[in-house]
Amino acid sequence: MEHNMRALFLAALFLIAVGFGLAFGFGFAAQRVASGINGSVALGAATLVATTWFGLWQFEKTKRKEAEARIFAQRAEIYHRLVVMLRDMIFAVKGWSEQRSETDLARDLSAITYDMIVWGGQDTIRQLMNLSDTSPTDVGGMMRRMSDLFRAIRKDLGHSDDAQLPEDIVLAMIVSDEREAVRAQMRSTQ
């Protein structure tokens, strides 16, 4: 939401600047024509200034997109490591894989968290912090916060999911017989 508001603000600011530039350029050209300078020269100068400014703006926009693409690649790799770690923790609770020591889990989570300082999106970092603040005995709260974390991860990676999908992703990790009970616990913690 904040990103969209910023984009709208920048677009409005750009349109105002272009409008002001055009008005100034045409006003300058009209004044020069009235004072005896060739109108086509003045209009050509205004066009040159506007074209140069637009080219610089487009170059800056392209650089920003390239930077976002580099960030995306790093971010996706870190988020993948985090999701795999969460999956393995759930599998260990279910007895489907070997239980790891708390020290190993804390070390891996700490490494992921530090990587996210550089590459992670702010909402995802906050959701990861919220997840780590949840009591292990609060299953519904833990699942709700995991759902919020998945929502933030998928949004950072460019997905436009419906509101239900992150909850469904968490529930897909649970045996089907337990899904409705866990869904009720998740919703009771909102």
Rank of each mutant, 00 (worst) to 15 (best):
P166A: 01
S188Q: 05
A67R: 10
A69W: 13
R100S: 02
R151S: 11
A46K: 01
L15S: 04
S132K: 11
M129R: 13
R144T: 01
R151D: 12
I16L: 10
R183T: 03
I78D: 09
A111C: 11
S135K: 05
L13Q: 03
D162G: 10
T51L: 13
H80P: 01
R70T: 04
N130A: 12
G21S: 00
L109H: 08
L8Y: 05
F26S: 03
L8A: 00
D123K: 13
E68I: 06
S35Q: 04
A7G: 02
T113E: 15
V33D: 10
R6K: 06
M5Y: 08
G44Q: 05
E102I: 13
L105K: 14
M1E: 06
Y114L: 14
F91N: 13
L105W: 06
A12S: 04
G44I: 05
D88Y: 08
V49P: 02
T47K: 07
L157F: 05
Q74V: 07
V175R: 12
F14R: 05
E60D: 11
L157Q: 10
V182Q: 03
N4H: 07
L131F: 15
Q122E: 15
G121N: 07
I78K: 02
I78N: 05
E60G: 03
L10D: 02
K94L: 12
F28V: 04
F14Q: 02
R183G: 00
W57S: 00
K155E: 14
V93Q: 14
G141S: 10
F91T: 08
M142A: 14
S160Q: 14
A152D: 07
R32K: 12
Q74S: 08
T52V: 15
F72L: 07
A152T: 02
D162W: 12
A106D: 03
M85C: 07
A42K: 05
D138E: 05
M142I: 09
Q31A: 14
Y79A: 03
G19F: 01
V139P: 09
A29E: 00
Q58F: 09
V41H: 13
D161H: 13
L171H: 02
I117D: 12
Q31K: 11
F59W: 12
E77S: 06
N4Q: 07
Q74G: 08
G44W: 10
E68V: 05
L157C: 04
E2S: 00
A69N: 13
Q58C: 00
A172L: 10
E60S: 12
E60M: 12
Q99G: 08
G120N: 06
W53E: 07
A184K: 06
I37C: 01
D156A: 01
Y114E: 15
H80G: 13
A50D: 10
L165I: 01
F20K: 00
S147K: 00
E178D: 14
T124G: 14
L56S: 02
S40Q: 13
E66V: 11
V84S: 03
S35K: 03
L15D: 00
L13V: 06
L43K: 04
D148Q: 01
A11L: 12
A152W: 06
R87T: 09
K63M: 06
Q122V: 14
D177P: 03
L165F: 14
F9C: 04
R144Q: 06
S97V: 11
W57Q: 02
F150G: 09
